[in-house]
Simulated assay, not measured.
Amino acid sequence: MAVIVKYVVERNGEEKMTFTSKAEADAYDKMLDMADELFTLLETSKLIEDDAQKEELSLYLAQNKDEVLYALGAKRKPTPKKAVKAVPETDEESDDADAA
Score class of each variant (00 low, 15 high):
48 I>A: 04
48 I>W: 02
48 I>G: 00
48 I>H: 03
48 I>V: 11
48 I>Y: 00
48 I>T: 00
49 E>Y: 12
49 E>G: 02
49 E>A: 06
49 E>S: 02
50 D>E: 11
50 D>V: 11
50 D>G: 04
50 D>I: 12
50 D>F: 10
51 D>C: 11
51 D>I: 13
52 A>L: 14
52 A>G: 10
52 A>K: 14
52 A>C: 11
53 Q>W: 12
53 Q>L: 12
53 Q>R: 11
53 Q>I: 11
53 Q>F: 11
53 Q>A: 10
54 K>H: 07
54 K>W: 11
54 K>Q: 09
54 K>V: 04
55 E>F: 15
55 E>Q: 15
55 E>D: 15
55 E>P: 06
55 E>S: 12
55 E>H: 14
55 E>I: 13
56 E>L: 10
56 E>S: 05
57 L>Q: 05
57 L>D: 07
57 L>M: 08
57 L>C: 02
58 S>Q: 08
58 S>V: 07
59 L>W: 08
59 L>F: 06
59 L>P: 05
59 L>Q: 03
60 Y>D: 08
60 Y>Q: 06
60 Y>M: 12
61 L>G: 00
61 L>Q: 02
61 L>C: 05
61 L>V: 14
61 L>Y: 12
61 L>M: 15
62 A>L: 09
62 A>E: 03
62 A>K: 04
62 A>Q: 08
63 Q>F: 14
63 Q>I: 14
63 Q>Y: 12
63 Q>P: 03
65 K>T: 00
65 K>W: 09
65 K>E: 04
65 K>Y: 07
65 K>N: 06
66 D>E: 09
66 D>Y: 12
66 D>G: 10
66 D>K: 14
66 D>A: 12
66 D>S: 12
67 E>Y: 15
67 E>L: 15
67 E>T: 09
68 V>Q: 00
68 V>S: 00
68 V>P: 02
68 V>N: 01
69 L>S: 06
69 L>R: 13
69 L>N: 09
70 Y>K: 07
70 Y>N: 02
70 Y>V: 11
70 Y>G: 08
71 A>N: 01
71 A>V: 05
71 A>Y: 10
72 L>I: 12
72 L>K: 07
72 L>C: 05
72 L>S: 07
72 L>V: 05
72 L>H: 02
73 G>S: 01
73 G>F: 14
73 G>Y: 10
73 G>R: 05
73 G>N: 05
74 A>H: 05
74 A>V: 07
74 A>Y: 09
75 K>G: 06
75 K>L: 02
75 K>I: 01
75 K>A: 07
75 K>S: 00
76 R>P: 14
76 R>D: 02
77 K>H: 03
77 K>F: 11
77 K>I: 12
77 K>G: 01
77 K>N: 00
78 P>I: 02
78 P>F: 09
